[in-house]
Design a protein around this nucleic acid. Structure first.
Lengths: 211, 211
DNA sequence: ACAAGGTTCAAACGTTCGTTTAAATCATTC
DNA sequence: GAATGATTTAAACGAACGTTTGAACCTTGT
Protein backbone atom coordinates (compact mmCIF):
# COMPACT_ATOMS: atom_id res chain seq x y z
CA UNK A 1 0.00 0.00 0.00
CA UNK A 2 2.72 2.43 0.97
CA UNK A 3 4.78 1.22 -1.97
CA UNK A 4 2.00 0.71 -4.46
CA UNK A 5 3.31 0.48 -8.01
CA UNK A 6 1.19 3.48 -8.93
CA UNK A 7 2.70 5.62 -6.18
CA UNK A 8 6.19 4.66 -7.21
CA UNK A 9 5.57 5.39 -10.88
CA UNK A 10 4.18 8.82 -9.97
CA UNK A 11 7.15 9.58 -7.70
CA UNK A 12 9.63 8.63 -10.43
CA UNK A 13 7.92 10.71 -13.09
CA UNK A 14 7.49 13.70 -10.78
CA UNK A 15 11.08 13.52 -9.63
CA UNK A 16 12.30 13.66 -13.20
CA UNK A 17 10.00 16.45 -14.35
CA UNK A 18 10.28 18.62 -11.23
CA UNK A 19 14.06 18.40 -11.55
CA UNK A 20 14.10 19.10 -15.26
CA UNK A 21 11.50 21.86 -15.55
CA UNK A 22 10.83 23.07 -12.01
CA UNK A 23 7.77 22.76 -9.81
CA UNK A 24 5.56 25.43 -11.36
CA UNK A 25 6.44 24.56 -14.95
CA UNK A 26 5.42 20.92 -14.46
CA UNK A 27 1.75 19.99 -14.66
CA UNK A 28 0.06 17.02 -13.05
CA UNK A 29 -1.16 16.01 -16.50
CA UNK A 30 2.43 15.79 -17.69
CA UNK A 31 3.46 13.76 -14.65
CA UNK A 32 0.60 11.28 -14.84
CA UNK A 33 1.04 10.87 -18.59
CA UNK A 34 4.70 10.01 -18.12
CA UNK A 35 3.85 7.66 -15.26
CA UNK A 36 1.14 6.01 -17.32
CA UNK A 37 -1.52 6.49 -14.66
CA UNK A 38 -4.77 8.39 -14.38
CA UNK A 39 -4.73 12.12 -13.67
CA UNK A 40 -6.72 11.74 -10.46
CA UNK A 41 -4.21 9.27 -9.02
CA UNK A 42 -2.01 12.06 -7.69
CA UNK A 43 -4.77 13.54 -5.59
CA UNK A 44 -5.92 10.11 -4.49
CA UNK A 45 -2.52 8.85 -3.37
CA UNK A 46 -0.81 12.04 -2.23
CA UNK A 47 -3.52 14.62 -1.66
CA UNK A 48 -2.31 17.30 -4.05
CA UNK A 49 0.58 18.66 -6.06
CA UNK A 50 2.45 20.20 -3.15
CA UNK A 51 2.15 17.04 -1.05
CA UNK A 52 3.53 15.10 -4.02
CA UNK A 53 6.55 17.40 -4.10
CA UNK A 54 7.17 16.77 -0.41
CA UNK A 55 6.90 13.01 -0.94
CA UNK A 56 9.37 13.21 -3.85
CA UNK A 57 11.89 15.08 -1.72
CA UNK A 58 11.50 13.02 1.44
CA UNK A 59 11.78 9.65 -0.31
CA UNK A 60 15.48 10.27 -0.87
CA UNK A 61 16.32 13.04 1.57
CA UNK A 62 15.42 11.04 4.67
CA UNK A 63 17.82 8.14 4.06
CA UNK A 64 20.46 10.54 2.71
CA UNK A 65 20.33 12.69 5.83
CA UNK A 66 20.46 9.60 8.02
CA UNK A 67 23.66 8.55 6.27
CA UNK A 68 25.21 11.99 6.58
CA UNK A 69 24.22 12.34 10.23
CA UNK A 70 25.62 8.86 10.94
CA UNK A 71 28.98 9.67 9.38
CA UNK A 72 29.14 12.98 11.22
CA UNK A 73 28.25 11.38 14.57
CA UNK A 74 30.85 8.69 14.08
CA UNK A 75 33.43 11.38 13.34
CA UNK A 76 32.53 13.32 16.50
CA UNK A 77 32.55 10.23 18.70
CA UNK A 78 35.95 9.26 17.41
CA UNK A 79 37.18 12.77 18.14
CA UNK A 80 35.88 12.64 21.70
CA UNK A 81 37.55 9.27 22.27
CA UNK A 82 40.90 10.28 20.84
CA UNK A 83 40.83 13.92 21.90
CA UNK A 84 41.76 15.00 18.38
CA UNK A 85 39.42 17.30 16.48
CA UNK A 86 38.29 15.96 13.10
CA UNK A 87 39.68 17.92 10.20
CA UNK A 88 37.61 20.31 8.17
CA UNK A 89 38.01 18.02 5.18
CA UNK A 90 36.70 14.98 7.05
CA UNK A 91 33.66 16.90 8.26
CA UNK A 92 32.86 18.19 4.81
CA UNK A 93 33.40 14.74 3.33
CA UNK A 94 30.79 13.25 5.65
CA UNK A 95 28.31 15.71 4.20
CA UNK A 96 29.36 15.79 0.57
CA UNK A 97 30.36 12.25 -0.32
CA UNK A 98 27.00 10.52 0.36
CA UNK A 99 25.36 13.29 -1.61
CA UNK A 100 27.44 12.96 -4.74
CA UNK A 101 27.47 9.17 -4.44
CA UNK A 102 23.79 9.29 -5.39
CA UNK A 103 24.96 9.77 -8.95
CA UNK A 104 26.10 6.19 -9.03
CA UNK A 105 22.60 4.96 -8.27
CA UNK A 106 21.15 5.63 -11.68
CA UNK A 107 19.55 8.47 -13.52
CA UNK A 108 16.64 8.60 -11.06
CA UNK A 109 18.80 9.61 -8.13
CA UNK A 110 20.58 12.07 -10.39
CA UNK A 111 17.24 13.75 -10.95
CA UNK A 112 16.89 14.09 -7.21
CA UNK A 113 20.23 15.87 -6.98
CA UNK A 114 19.18 18.35 -9.62
CA UNK A 115 15.88 18.89 -7.83
CA UNK A 116 17.60 19.67 -4.56
CA UNK A 117 19.98 22.00 -6.36
CA UNK A 118 17.03 23.87 -7.80
CA UNK A 119 15.29 23.93 -4.44
CA UNK A 120 18.24 25.65 -2.83
CA UNK A 121 18.02 28.30 -5.52
CA UNK A 122 14.44 29.34 -4.72
CA UNK A 123 14.59 30.84 -1.24
CA UNK A 124 10.89 31.65 -1.11
CA UNK A 125 9.67 28.73 -3.16
CA UNK A 126 7.33 25.93 -2.17
CA UNK A 127 10.08 23.35 -1.97
CA UNK A 128 12.33 25.44 0.26
CA UNK A 129 9.95 25.28 3.21
CA UNK A 130 9.76 21.51 2.93
CA UNK A 131 13.50 21.22 2.46
CA UNK A 132 14.64 23.46 5.30
CA UNK A 133 12.36 21.72 7.80
CA UNK A 134 14.28 18.50 7.22
CA UNK A 135 17.76 20.00 6.82
CA UNK A 136 17.98 22.41 9.75
CA UNK A 137 19.20 19.97 12.45
CA UNK A 138 21.90 18.49 10.26
CA UNK A 139 23.08 21.92 9.11
CA UNK A 140 23.25 23.09 12.72
CA UNK A 141 25.35 20.05 13.61
CA UNK A 142 27.61 20.65 10.64
CA UNK A 143 28.07 24.29 11.59
CA UNK A 144 29.03 23.46 15.17
CA UNK A 145 31.51 20.81 14.06
CA UNK A 146 33.14 23.24 11.64
CA UNK A 147 33.46 26.05 14.19
CA UNK A 148 35.23 23.63 16.52
CA UNK A 149 37.57 22.42 13.83
CA UNK A 150 38.42 26.02 12.86
CA UNK A 151 38.92 27.67 16.28
CA UNK A 152 40.77 30.65 14.81
CA UNK A 153 37.78 31.69 12.74
CA UNK A 154 34.87 33.80 13.98
CA UNK A 155 31.36 32.35 13.75
CA UNK A 156 30.69 35.00 11.13
CA UNK A 157 33.49 33.73 8.93
CA UNK A 158 32.57 30.07 9.37
CA UNK A 159 28.99 30.85 8.50
CA UNK A 160 29.87 32.78 5.37
CA UNK A 161 32.27 30.13 4.16
CA UNK A 162 29.83 27.33 4.86
CA UNK A 163 27.29 29.36 2.94
CA UNK A 164 29.67 29.58 -0.03
CA UNK A 165 30.42 25.87 0.25
CA UNK A 166 26.73 25.02 0.11
CA UNK A 167 26.46 27.25 -2.95
CA UNK A 168 29.23 25.37 -4.71
CA UNK A 169 27.76 22.01 -3.81
CA UNK A 170 24.26 22.89 -4.94
CA UNK A 171 25.71 24.17 -8.20
CA UNK A 172 27.47 20.95 -9.12
CA UNK A 173 24.43 19.00 -7.92
CA UNK A 174 22.20 20.63 -10.48
CA UNK A 175 24.67 21.10 -13.33
CA UNK A 176 25.39 17.58 -14.49
CA UNK A 177 24.65 18.28 -18.12
CA UNK A 178 26.82 19.87 -20.72
CA UNK A 179 27.12 23.57 -20.26
CA UNK A 180 27.19 26.02 -23.10
CA UNK A 181 30.26 27.61 -21.61
CA UNK A 182 32.25 24.40 -21.33
CA UNK A 183 35.49 24.96 -23.25
CA UNK A 184 36.98 22.32 -25.49
CA UNK A 185 39.22 19.61 -24.07
CA UNK A 186 37.20 19.65 -20.88
CA UNK A 187 34.96 16.78 -19.92
CA UNK A 188 32.20 17.55 -17.44
CA UNK A 189 31.56 13.86 -16.83
CA UNK A 190 33.97 12.70 -14.13
CA UNK A 191 33.84 9.67 -11.86
CA UNK A 192 32.23 10.49 -8.55
CA UNK A 193 35.24 9.79 -6.37
CA UNK A 194 37.28 12.21 -8.47
CA UNK A 195 34.54 14.81 -8.29
CA UNK A 196 34.42 14.47 -4.52
CA UNK A 197 38.15 15.12 -4.29
CA UNK A 198 37.97 18.10 -6.63
CA UNK A 199 35.21 19.54 -4.52
CA UNK A 200 36.92 18.86 -1.19
CA UNK A 201 40.19 20.36 -2.44
CA UNK A 202 38.34 23.53 -3.36
CA UNK A 203 36.01 23.82 -0.39
CA UNK A 204 38.53 22.83 2.27
CA UNK A 205 41.04 25.37 1.00
CA UNK A 206 38.34 28.03 1.06
CA UNK A 207 37.23 27.12 4.56
CA UNK A 208 40.71 26.99 6.04
CA UNK A 209 42.38 29.99 4.44
CA UNK A 210 43.86 32.47 6.95
CA UNK A 211 42.70 30.24 9.77
CA UNK B 1 9.67 56.02 -26.19
CA UNK B 2 12.39 53.59 -25.24
CA UNK B 3 12.21 54.80 -21.66
CA UNK B 4 8.48 55.38 -21.42
CA UNK B 5 7.34 55.56 -17.79
CA UNK B 6 5.04 52.60 -18.41
CA UNK B 7 7.88 50.43 -19.69
CA UNK B 8 10.03 51.32 -16.73
CA UNK B 9 7.27 50.59 -14.23
CA UNK B 10 6.67 47.21 -15.84
CA UNK B 11 10.38 46.35 -15.83
CA UNK B 12 10.70 47.26 -12.15
CA UNK B 13 7.67 45.23 -11.13
CA UNK B 14 8.67 42.26 -13.25
CA UNK B 15 12.22 42.35 -11.95
CA UNK B 16 10.99 42.19 -8.38
CA UNK B 17 8.41 39.46 -8.91
CA UNK B 18 10.51 37.27 -11.23
CA UNK B 19 13.29 37.41 -8.65
CA UNK B 20 11.02 36.72 -5.69
CA UNK B 21 8.75 34.01 -7.10
CA UNK B 22 10.35 32.80 -10.31
CA UNK B 23 9.30 33.17 -13.92
CA UNK B 24 6.54 30.58 -14.10
CA UNK B 25 5.06 31.44 -10.72
CA UNK B 26 4.64 35.10 -11.67
CA UNK B 27 1.63 36.13 -13.77
CA UNK B 28 1.35 39.13 -16.04
CA UNK B 29 -1.70 40.18 -14.05
CA UNK B 30 0.41 40.29 -10.91
CA UNK B 31 3.13 42.29 -12.65
CA UNK B 32 0.80 44.86 -14.23
CA UNK B 33 -1.13 45.24 -10.99
CA UNK B 34 2.07 46.01 -9.11
CA UNK B 35 3.20 48.39 -11.84
CA UNK B 36 -0.17 50.12 -11.86
CA UNK B 37 -0.65 49.69 -15.60
CA UNK B 38 -3.08 47.85 -17.82
CA UNK B 39 -2.70 44.14 -18.43
CA UNK B 40 -2.30 44.57 -22.17
CA UNK B 41 0.61 46.97 -21.73
CA UNK B 42 3.12 44.13 -21.49
CA UNK B 43 2.19 42.69 -24.87
CA UNK B 44 2.02 46.16 -26.38
CA UNK B 45 5.42 47.33 -25.17
CA UNK B 46 7.40 44.09 -25.06
CA UNK B 47 5.54 41.58 -27.20
CA UNK B 48 4.98 38.89 -24.61
CA UNK B 49 6.00 37.45 -21.28
CA UNK B 50 9.24 35.85 -22.45
CA UNK B 51 10.36 39.01 -24.25
CA UNK B 52 9.67 40.91 -21.03
CA UNK B 53 11.97 38.54 -19.14
CA UNK B 54 14.72 39.15 -21.65
CA UNK B 55 14.26 42.92 -21.36
CA UNK B 56 14.42 42.67 -17.57
CA UNK B 57 17.67 40.73 -17.70
CA UNK B 58 19.36 42.80 -20.40
CA UNK B 59 18.57 46.17 -18.83
CA UNK B 60 21.13 45.49 -16.11
CA UNK B 61 23.23 42.68 -17.55
CA UNK B 62 24.47 44.69 -20.52
CA UNK B 63 26.05 47.55 -18.53
CA UNK B 64 27.24 45.10 -15.86
CA UNK B 65 29.03 42.93 -18.41
CA UNK B 66 30.54 46.02 -20.04
CA UNK B 67 32.00 47.02 -16.68
CA UNK B 68 33.35 43.53 -16.01
CA UNK B 69 34.81 43.18 -19.48
CA UNK B 70 36.41 46.63 -19.15
CA UNK B 71 38.08 45.76 -15.86
CA UNK B 72 39.26 42.45 -17.24
CA UNK B 73 40.66 44.05 -20.39
CA UNK B 74 42.48 46.69 -18.37
CA UNK B 75 44.00 43.94 -16.24
CA UNK B 76 45.18 42.01 -19.27
CA UNK B 77 46.62 45.09 -20.98
CA UNK B 78 48.52 46.00 -17.85
CA UNK B 79 49.87 42.45 -17.71
CA UNK B 80 51.06 42.62 -21.30
CA UNK B 81 52.74 45.95 -20.67
CA UNK B 82 54.49 44.87 -17.46
CA UNK B 83 55.04 41.24 -18.40
CA UNK B 84 53.59 40.15 -15.06
CA UNK B 85 50.54 37.90 -15.06
CA UNK B 86 47.59 39.28 -13.09
CA UNK B 87 46.84 37.30 -9.94
CA UNK B 88 43.92 34.96 -9.68
CA UNK B 89 42.43 37.25 -7.05
CA UNK B 90 42.61 40.31 -9.31
CA UNK B 91 40.93 38.45 -12.15
CA UNK B 92 38.14 37.19 -9.94
CA UNK B 93 37.72 40.64 -8.42
CA UNK B 94 37.14 42.16 -11.84
CA UNK B 95 34.24 39.77 -12.24
CA UNK B 96 32.84 39.69 -8.73
CA UNK B 97 33.13 43.20 -7.40
CA UNK B 98 30.94 44.98 -10.00
CA UNK B 99 28.38 42.27 -9.47
CA UNK B 100 28.09 42.57 -5.71
CA UNK B 101 28.37 46.37 -5.91
CA UNK B 102 24.90 46.33 -7.42
CA UNK B 103 23.61 45.84 -3.92
CA UNK B 104 24.53 49.39 -3.11
CA UNK B 105 22.27 50.67 -5.86
CA UNK B 106 19.02 50.06 -4.07
CA UNK B 107 16.56 47.25 -3.64
CA UNK B 108 15.79 47.17 -7.36
CA UNK B 109 19.28 46.11 -8.35
CA UNK B 110 19.23 43.63 -5.48
CA UNK B 111 16.23 42.01 -7.12
CA UNK B 112 18.25 41.65 -10.29
CA UNK B 113 21.00 39.82 -8.43
CA UNK B 114 18.50 37.37 -7.02
CA UNK B 115 16.99 36.89 -10.47
CA UNK B 116 20.35 36.05 -12.00
CA UNK B 117 21.07 33.70 -9.11
CA UNK B 118 17.81 31.89 -9.84
CA UNK B 119 18.50 31.84 -13.55
CA UNK B 120 21.78 30.04 -13.02
CA UNK B 121 19.89 27.41 -11.07
CA UNK B 122 17.55 26.47 -13.89
CA UNK B 123 19.78 24.94 -16.57
CA UNK B 124 16.92 24.19 -18.94
CA UNK B 125 14.76 27.17 -18.04
CA UNK B 126 13.60 30.00 -20.25
CA UNK B 127 15.94 32.50 -18.70
CA UNK B 128 19.04 30.36 -19.09
CA UNK B 129 19.00 30.57 -22.88
CA UNK B 130 18.75 34.35 -22.74
CA UNK B 131 21.40 34.53 -20.07
CA UNK B 132 24.00 32.27 -21.62
CA UNK B 133 23.81 34.04 -24.96
CA UNK B 134 25.02 37.23 -23.31
CA UNK B 135 27.46 35.67 -20.85
CA UNK B 136 29.41 33.23 -23.03
CA UNK B 137 32.08 35.63 -24.39
CA UNK B 138 32.87 37.08 -20.99
CA UNK B 139 33.02 33.64 -19.39
CA UNK B 140 35.37 32.44 -22.11
CA UNK B 141 37.62 35.45 -21.51
CA UNK B 142 37.57 34.81 -17.78
CA UNK B 143 38.45 31.17 -18.27
CA UNK B 144 41.42 31.95 -20.49
CA UNK B 145 42.74 34.55 -18.06
CA UNK B 146 42.48 32.11 -15.18
CA UNK B 147 44.24 29.28 -17.00
CA UNK B 148 47.14 31.65 -17.73
CA UNK B 149 47.33 32.83 -14.15
CA UNK B 150 47.32 29.23 -12.90
CA UNK B 151 49.81 27.53 -15.27
CA UNK B 152 50.30 24.52 -13.01
CA UNK B 153 46.65 23.56 -13.22
CA UNK B 154 45.08 21.49 -16.00
CA UNK B 155 42.21 23.01 -17.98
CA UNK B 156 40.02 20.39 -16.37
CA UNK B 157 40.87 21.63 -12.90
CA UNK B 158 40.51 25.30 -13.79
CA UNK B 159 37.14 24.60 -15.32
CA UNK B 160 35.86 22.67 -12.32
CA UNK B 161 37.07 25.28 -9.86
CA UNK B 162 35.62 28.12 -11.91
CA UNK B 163 32.39 26.16 -11.98
CA UNK B 164 32.45 25.90 -8.20
CA UNK B 165 33.27 29.59 -7.90
CA UNK B 166 30.31 30.52 -10.07
CA UNK B 167 28.17 28.31 -7.84
CA UNK B 168 29.30 30.15 -4.73
CA UNK B 169 28.75 33.53 -6.32
CA UNK B 170 25.29 32.73 -7.59
CA UNK B 171 24.39 31.43 -4.16
CA UNK B 172 25.26 34.62 -2.32
CA UNK B 173 23.65 36.62 -5.12
CA UNK B 174 20.29 35.06 -4.50
CA UNK B 175 20.45 34.57 -0.74
CA UNK B 176 20.39 38.06 0.66
CA UNK B 177 17.54 37.41 3.05
CA UNK B 178 17.58 35.80 6.43
CA UNK B 179 18.07 32.09 6.25
CA UNK B 180 16.32 29.62 8.48
CA UNK B 181 19.65 28.00 9.21
CA UNK B 182 21.45 31.17 10.20
CA UNK B 183 22.79 30.58 13.72
CA UNK B 184 22.64 33.19 16.44
CA UNK B 185 25.30 35.86 16.72
CA UNK B 186 25.69 35.84 12.97
CA UNK B 187 24.54 38.74 10.87
CA UNK B 188 23.90 38.02 7.23
CA UNK B 189 23.87 41.71 6.34
CA UNK B 190 27.44 42.78 5.69
CA UNK B 191 28.79 45.82 3.84
CA UNK B 192 29.55 45.00 0.24
CA UNK B 193 33.29 45.63 0.38
CA UNK B 194 33.55 43.20 3.29
CA UNK B 195 31.45 40.64 1.45
CA UNK B 196 33.70 40.95 -1.61
CA UNK B 197 36.75 40.22 0.51
CA UNK B 198 35.12 37.27 2.24
CA UNK B 199 34.22 35.87 -1.15
CA UNK B 200 37.63 36.48 -2.71
CA UNK B 201 39.40 34.93 0.28
CA UNK B 202 37.33 31.80 -0.15
CA UNK B 203 37.32 31.54 -3.93
CA UNK B 204 40.97 32.46 -4.46
CA UNK B 205 42.10 29.89 -1.94
CA UNK B 206 39.96 27.29 -3.65
CA UNK B 207 41.27 28.20 -7.09
CA UNK B 208 44.92 28.24 -6.11
CA UNK B 209 45.19 25.20 -3.84
CA UNK B 210 47.85 22.68 -4.92
CA UNK B 211 48.73 24.93 -7.84
C1' DA C 1 -10.09 72.84 -35.03
C1' DC C 2 -9.00 68.64 -36.90
C1' DA C 3 -6.65 64.65 -38.45
C1' DA C 4 -3.13 61.02 -37.23
C1' DG C 5 -0.52 57.98 -34.55
C1' DG C 6 0.91 56.36 -30.43
C1' DT C 7 -0.94 54.62 -26.06
C1' DT C 8 -4.31 52.92 -22.68
C1' DC C 9 -8.39 50.58 -21.57
C1' DA C 10 -12.10 47.04 -20.36
C1' DA C 11 -13.54 42.93 -22.09
C1' DA C 12 -13.22 38.71 -24.00
C1' DC C 13 -10.61 34.98 -26.37
C1' DG C 14 -9.21 29.97 -26.12
C1' DT C 15 -6.24 27.09 -23.21
C1' DT C 16 -4.52 24.91 -19.41
C1' DC C 17 -4.29 24.41 -14.68
C1' DG C 18 -5.28 21.67 -9.95
C1' DT C 19 -8.98 19.55 -8.06
C1' DT C 20 -13.41 17.08 -7.56
C1' DT C 21 -17.02 13.83 -8.61
C1' DA C 22 -19.43 9.62 -9.23
C1' DA C 23 -19.46 5.57 -11.63
C1' DA C 24 -16.66 1.51 -12.88
C1' DT C 25 -13.33 -1.90 -11.73
C1' DC C 26 -10.37 -4.63 -8.88
C1' DA C 27 -9.03 -7.31 -4.77
C1' DT C 28 -10.18 -9.41 -0.51
C1' DT C 29 -13.04 -11.59 3.01
C1' DC C 30 -16.78 -14.01 4.85
C1' DG D 1 -20.23 -15.86 -5.02
C1' DA D 2 -22.03 -11.90 -2.88
C1' DA D 3 -20.40 -8.06 -0.28
C1' DT D 4 -17.08 -4.75 1.12
C1' DG D 5 -13.40 -1.59 0.71
C1' DA D 6 -9.60 0.06 -2.09
C1' DT D 7 -8.30 1.73 -6.48
C1' DT D 8 -8.89 3.41 -11.19
C1' DT D 9 -11.39 5.78 -14.61
C1' DA D 10 -13.57 9.44 -17.68
C1' DA D 11 -15.61 13.64 -17.31
C1' DA D 12 -16.35 17.92 -15.60
C1' DC D 13 -15.55 21.87 -12.36
C1' DG D 14 -14.19 26.79 -11.55
C1' DA D 15 -10.21 29.52 -11.65
C1' DA D 16 -6.28 31.54 -13.62
C1' DC D 17 -3.26 31.87 -17.37
C1' DG D 18 -1.08 34.54 -21.80
C1' DT D 19 -2.82 36.83 -25.50
C1' DT D 20 -5.92 39.47 -28.64
C1' DT D 21 -9.33 42.81 -29.84
C1' DG D 22 -11.42 47.18 -30.95
C1' DA D 23 -12.89 51.23 -29.06
C1' DA D 24 -11.47 55.19 -26.18
C1' DC D 25 -7.99 58.24 -24.92
C1' DC D 26 -4.25 61.19 -25.26
C1' DT D 27 -0.54 63.87 -27.70
C1' DT D 28 1.32 66.10 -31.60
C1' DG D 29 1.61 68.67 -36.06
C1' DT D 30 -0.72 71.51 -39.23
Amino acid sequence: MSSSPTKRKILDAAEHLFARDGYHATSLRCITARAGVNLAAVNYHFGGKEALLEAVILRRLTPLNATRQGLLDRLLEEAERSGVQPSCREILRAFVEPTLRLREKGAEAEDFLALVGRTLAEPRGVAMTIFMRHMAPLMQCLFVALTRSLPNLSEQDVFWRLHLTVGSLSHIMRCHERYAMVPENVSIAAPVSELVDVFLDFATAGMEVNA
